[in-house]
């Protein structure tokens, strides 16, 4: 599997990470190396093998529908880089 600069650029955009030209260049190269190494997995026969998403065999973990504590708005907003009264604010979203 080879990974092009365009692919890295597409993925960086999906991940919302700004990369400069130099970073793009370097990352493409490094990712290529990592992917070549990862491609070792292709040699195994995995037909009939179930994937493991959870290593523990636990299931049906549920909580009761009883209200717990919420945070006061001051605390919820205490770390906000930008706020207005009781709201977080972001650059205008244009739909």
């Amino acid at each position: 599997m080879s990974i092009s600069k365009e692919t890295v650029d597409y993925v960086a955009n999906l991940a919302r990470i700004q990369l400069n030209e130099q970073e793009l260049e370097r990352l493409s190269r490094q990712l290529q190396g990592i992917l070549d190494f990862i491609d070792k997995l292709r040699e195994i026969d995995i037909s009939d093998i179930a994937p493991t998403s959870h290593i523990l065999e636990i299931k049906n973990i549920l909580r009761d529908d009883t209200p717990g504590e919420s945070l006061p708005a001051e605390k919820a907003l205490a770390n906000a880089p930008s706020k207005n009264g009781r709201f977080f604010t972001v650059p205008k979203v244009i739909e």
Binding site: G68, S70, R86, F87
Partner: peptide, 18 residues
């Protein structure tokens, strides 16, 4: 997925938790 109330029409950001 948390114990925050689902009541409608509360003050902004008052029914929130981590």
């Amino acid at each position: 997925f948390c114990g925050c109330s689902t009541e409608f029409g509360s003050e902004p950001n008052s029914q929130v938790c981590p």
